[in-house]
Design a protein around this nucleic acid. Sequence first.
DNA 1: CTTTTTTACGGGATTCGTAAGGATG
DNA 2: CATCCTTACGAATCCCGTAAAAAAG
Lengths: 179, 179
Amino acid sequence: MPRLDLFIVDIRQLRYFVGVVEAGSFTKAAATLNVAQSALSLHVRQLEEGFGTQLLVRDRTGVSVTASGDKLLERARIILKEILLTEAELTNSVAAPSGEVTIGIPSGAARVLSGPLLESVRSELPRISLKMIEGMTGPLEEVDGFWPLQSGCPLPHCRECGANDSAGTRRVLPGGAAR
Amino acid sequence: MPRLDLFIVDIRQLRYFVGVVEAGSFTKAAATLNVAQSALSLHVRQLEEGFGTQLLVRDRTGVSVTASGDKLLERARIILKEILLTEAELTNSVAAPSGEVTIGIPSGAARVLSGPLLESVRSELPRISLKMIEGMTGPLEEVDGFWPLQSGCPLPHCRECGANDSAGTRRVLPGGAAR
DNA sequence: CTTTTTTACGGGATTCGTAAGGATG
DNA sequence: CATCCTTACGAATCCCGTAAAAAAG
């Protein structure tokens, strides 16, 4: 059964196309992109067939873009830039913190906080396993893996408060501690 | 030698990811996208591994996005829209006009126009084979496949002038048309 | 037990690079 | 004839769908 798929441009096709245009020839682009010329030729041809339009004018000295090719070049650059931004945004951001977190909350606060808190942590930091210890009356003490609630800022190791902190936990635990 | 390629998102991965999020589950998305669930699972996993971040929270009832997943969702939609626009622009536009075009130009005008004109047509409308008949003195008459130059607008079948026109020729002839 | 996701695996398609074939000035 | 692009083709890779396995209420 033949592929009935609509023609959908491929990122690689766009990258190769832009590379060829910018290099001014398939040969140079092949060197720049570390790809065989034949691959470039093939991909550009696929683009042209997919669009039903000629994109490049092949010439002895290299290639130049047609009107359609120029349109595509413009759009392709936008798309590739957008993709670059996306990858930067997703990979630069610290990987989602993971681990086990135990917090202590006075029973009163726990009644209103625990539900939303659990929900929020579960949806936004799914790799955090959150455990709560409630029913505390006096100020909680820090034991290994267990930190007390502070009066002003409840966050342990809060950067605003000066203490160091393990990645990102302070941003989601409104009233808790992290490890 | 293993692929040393940087991680580069694939259009299909983005489409599948968005599909899964919008469907709310892999299963439903598989039906919507006409793809096996395993393929979706695989692609989403590849995305997550590529970014080093969890994107979806799998749950018995389906899936929900993490904070990173939401970021990606937003960007992916932009990219996919951009691609859609690109394809529309490239395929909706009439395919590059092709065929044989014959024009008549008075010798005087021909001397200055023919060079740039041929060049321009050759680079922007490579599928047009342009033939010129110069040396005309009086007003040219329209015979089949041959149209006279108009006084104001030298273009045959120029839409601005009212006559009908074969696709797009008026847009590239610097003797009178835009562009 | 039902619903959902994940993993395993085999067939088929795709991609790439090498190398030969053309076109063009 | 030199340079560039295209085509042919074999090998490695990738992708998808079927089907079995695991998780979770």
